[in-house]
Amino acid sequence: MNDESLTKYAGGCLCGAVRYAPTAPPLMEGNCHCRDCRRVSGGPYAPTLFFALESVNIRGDVKYYESIGGSGQPIRRGFCPHCGSQLFGRPSMRPGMIGIRAGTLDDPAAFQPQVDIFASHAAPWDRMLDTTAKFDTSPPAP
């Protein structure tokens, strides 16, 4: 993938104070249904693109809040301290990865979910896509 095709994965927060631009394609794209992700997203799941941490350039001040994810291990969630947009997830169980919330992409249509993770934690009213692989908990590392 060339740099031009990666621009579809660029994005930022609501106020523009934080911007990011990956230098490599995502390792995985999916919806996380764990209770922690549902709570932080305010929806039935957190749509997330997972990248190698070193492949994402972040500009701006990001604040992090740590909580316990569906895995039972800590996850650091990055947000803009100005507008509150939740942008990133840094799960301790995958130290070399960063999750980027699909809704913060400049072009959210670039998000193409391949998996549903922590599907066993999904709300009973949640309807998952028929086209995604389902994992009761976390999938094997990409």
Results as ranks from 00 to 15, higher is better:
T7G: 02
G12A: 05
G11Y: 14
W125E: 05
Q112V: 10
F88I: 08
I98F: 13
V62F: 00
S55Q: 00
G60I: 01
K8T: 10
K134M: 12
S120M: 08
R127C: 09
F118C: 01
N57D: 11
S120I: 03
G12T: 07
A102D: 04
E54V: 00
V56T: 02
L53M: 10
V40P: 07
P95M: 08
A122G: 06
L49E: 10
Q73M: 08
P74G: 07
S138F: 08
P95Y: 06
R94Q: 12
I98D: 05
S67D: 13
P91E: 04
G70Q: 02
L129R: 15
I75Y: 00
L53S: 07
D126A: 14
I98V: 15
P25A: 15
F50W: 14
G42K: 08
I100F: 10
T104N: 05
P25G: 13
C13R: 15
Y64R: 13
D136Q: 11
D3M: 14
V18M: 06
G103S: 07
G60C: 03
E29I: 11
I75Q: 02
C83T: 09
G96F: 01
A102R: 08
P25H: 10
P139E: 03
T132Y: 11
G84C: 14
L87Y: 01
S5C: 01
L129P: 11
R35W: 14
P142I: 03
G99C: 02
G99K: 07
L53I: 11
G103Q: 09
A102T: 03
I75D: 01
G96N: 13
S120V: 07
R77F: 00
Q112R: 15
T23N: 01
W125Q: 02
F111C: 07
I117P: 06
Q73I: 02
T132I: 13
M97D: 12
Q114C: 03
V56W: 01
P81C: 00
T131C: 09
P140V: 02
P26L: 11
A24V: 01
M1I: 04
D130P: 04
S41V: 10
G11W: 14
F50K: 12
M1Y: 04
Y65F: 12
G103D: 06
Y20C: 05
M93G: 04
F135Y: 15
I98R: 07
G84A: 15
G89Q: 13
I68C: 04
I100M: 08
N2V: 04
L87P: 01
R127F: 09
R101V: 14
M97R: 12
D136W: 09
G99Q: 03
V115F: 02
Y64D: 09
